[in-house]
């Protein structure tokens, strides 16, 4: 008596795929298709105001154009510099804050909450706030400097090439240092006390204890924070757009402000997508770098008391 085989969706070897189907479909429609679509448009002369240009295949011309464009490379380089400075300053400040808060025995919870305040504001609002702080005519900073007699003229905080970039980095650091601080504080809480005491007995000065024991233990936490923040900063747009709009004359242009301008203001969506792909590769490179570091730093952490 030959059994009729069950329909294929009831066969055991298809079960995993059927169970995964909803997830696969979601990923395909939400991530993969838009990604492929935008990749396709980066090879077309797609302009938002002329939908028919979506079918205008131009090959690698968008890429050729951005790679030979000085403005693009300036924005690219500025993004990397911006990222490097912001991450390092945030790391150092965050580490300092975490070490200080870790020492406090009274009111620590309250301080931890207060420390998180900057993260509770929308980046747009932070941008507006600092735009007014740094405004050369009515800004509180110039006002304070002049009242204190530290400066006699209006300092063009958001106009000068270096000062404007400084102002943006300052806002970024103000807003996000607590990401580092909170992650490093978590690391300090998780840190076993015994090796610190062993190091003290072994002859270490407080600085040596920090350098040889505390810091290596914190490195995995540092790299986690670096990964998160590098993704964050590499897509920086809102603060910059609000404070300077990438200007004046492109002096504070970062990759994403340039991409947004190209895509929406100039309606050259194809070219903007080409830039976006380059910027994604940059982000992936940073993530990969920090993850490699993270894995190297964590290797010895498993199971050791």
């Amino acid at each position: 008596m030959a059994n009729k085989p069950p329909p294929f969706w009831q066969r055991e070897k298809y079960t995993p795929y059927i169970l995964l189907l909803p997830a696969i479909l979601t990923l395909v429609f939400v991530v993969l298709l838009p990604l492929l679509f935008s990749l396709y448009t980066s090879f077309t002369g797609y302009r938002l105001i002329r939908p028919e240009s979506l079918y205008q295949w131009v090959g690698l011309r968008n890429y050729e154009r951005i790679f030979s464009d000085g403005d693009f490379w300036s924005a690219f380089g500025r993004t990397i510099i911006f990222l490097t400075i912001a991450l390092n300053v945030e790391f150092l400040l965050g580490l300092g804050i975490a070490l200080l808060i870790n020492k406090i025995t009274w009111g620590q919870r309250t301080l931890r909450t207060i420390m998180m305040f900057p993260m509770m504001f929308s980046p747009i609002l932070v941008g507006y706030q600092f735009k007014f702080v740094f405004n050369d005519n009515i800004g509180i900073l110039n006002n304070a400097l002049q009242s204190l007699g530290l400066s006699d003229g209006a300092i063009p905080w958001l106009v000068d090439k270096y000062l404007a970039n400084f102002a943006i980095i300052f806002a970024e650091v103000w807003m996000s240092t607590s990401v580092f601080a909170i992650l490093l504080l978590a690391g300090l809480f998780a840190m076993p006390r015994d090796p610190l005491e062993a190091a003290k007995v072994d002859g270490c000065t407080p600085w040596q204890v920090f350098r040889h024991i505390t810091l290596p233990f914190l490195m995995p936490f540092v790299f986690i924070a670096m990964t998160i923040r590098s993704l964050d900063v590499a897509r920086a747009y809102d603060i910059v757009d609000v404070m300077t709009g990438g200007g004046p004359a492109g002096r504070t242009e970062l990759l994403w402000t340039l991409i947004a301008r190209t895509g929406y203001d100039n309606a050259r969506m194809g070219q903007a997508n080409a830039m976006a792909y380059v910027s994604i590769i940059l982000s992936i490179a940073f993530t990969y770098y920090f993850f490699t570091k993270l894995i190297a730093a964590r290797k010895y952490m498993g199971g050791a008391a």
């Binding site: 076993p192 007995v201 050791a304």
Partner: peptide
Amino acid sequence: ISMVFQNYALYPH
């Protein structure tokens, strides 16, 4: 002086 701890207190890294 040298000290040996209950939890060994070795440097994990």
